[in-house]
């Protein structure tokens, strides 16, 4: 049972992190939290940017993934090869992905003589495209498994009753894969909120910190500001960030539990 040492160690780390500093901690009350929001507006800006990015990317990723899953469950030639290709980008790390897309996007924008850091909107949509490229394949795999689990007699019954394609899709397929949709939604939401590597490699927050997401804002507060108390502010921001992420996770847990009870 040596393995206890390690989780225990983690527990210590975690508990220490509730404090704002580890060796020279001075109690400052809520000052750090106030500073996190008032010293500059970057933290709030990064929150809105993250939120907008998450909403847009969650919708696009899931729609694309679901559409691909529908296409790949029709028994088309080469289904397995397509599945392999669509999934592959998911395994490539965030930093590598960021630079691949920086090249591509700058190449396309170069036609108009601009690049990805010219305008924050370019960075935003660049990130959305990147995340779709990376995550759509992953979610597609989950949707495929769910669609394949729908009993065929249910679909046959629907077609005998004269249900058209769209009717079958909305009345049978989507309700049957609802649990998977919930899972995918939450996975994409948390991924979106926690995004860092891709953000760093693609735009590094440029232009002028306008494409900085929350995780990056926290990192920059910790490690690039020179003020003595910056770490405290960083930790305060991290706590706020944790609360947001935890709220998302707990909502998911609640929904899944409720579903299980209903079943």
């Amino acid at each position: 049972m040596i393995s206890f040492v390690i989780p225990f160690f983690w527990g210590i780390v975690l508990s220490f992190c509730k404090f704002t500093n580890i060796t020279n901690a001075d109690f400052v009350g809520f000052q750090n939290y106030i500073e996190a929001f008032t010293v500059d507006s970057y933290f709030m800006d990064s929150f809105w940017f993250t939120l907008a990015f998450t909403v847009v990317s969650v919708i696009t990723i899931n729609v694309i993934a679901f559409a691909l899953a529908l296409c790949l469950t029709k028994g088309v030639l080469g289904t397995n090869i397509f599945r392999t290709i669509f999934f592959m980008p998911n395994l490539i790390g965030g930093i590598v992905l960021g630079y691949i897309w920086q090249l591509i996007i700058n190449g396309v924008l170069g036609i108009w003589g601009v690049n990805i850091t010219t305008n924050a909107n370019y960075g935003f949509w660049g990130l959305v495209i990147l995340m779709n490229w990376q995550n759509a394949g992953y979610m597609m795999i989950i949707y495929i498994a769910a669609i394949q689990n729908i009993p065929t007699d249910m679909l046959e019954a629907a077609s005998i009753d004269g249900a058209g394609y769209w009717r079958t899709l909305f009345k049978i397929i989507i309700p049957s894969v609802m649990p998977s949709i919930t899972i995918c939604l939450f996975m994409t939401i948390t991924n979106g909120f926690k995004l860092y590597d891709q953000n760093l490699a693609l735009t590094a927050g440029n232009p002028g910190r306008q494409t900085e997401m929350m995780a990056m804002n926290i990192f920059n507060t910790f490690f690039t500001r020179n003020a003595y108390f910056a770490q405290g502010v960083g930790q305060a921001k991290a706590v706020v960030f944790t609360i947001i992420v935890a709220a998302i996770a707990l909502t998911q847990l609640g929904i899944t539990r409720k579903k299980e009870v209903e079943n």
């Binding site: 780390v13 580890i22 860092y196 770490q231 991290a238 960030f241 944790t242 996770a249 707990l250």
Partner: peptide
């Protein structure tokens, strides 16, 4: 307690422990 700590560790994002952990 361990079970609870593990649950918490799964939810908490890396940024939360990033600074203290690296100092540790």
């Amino acid at each position: 307690i361990i079970y609870f700590a593990l649950t918490v560790s799964m939810i908490v994002p890396f940024q939360m422990v990033m600074f203290t952990m690296s100092r540790f």
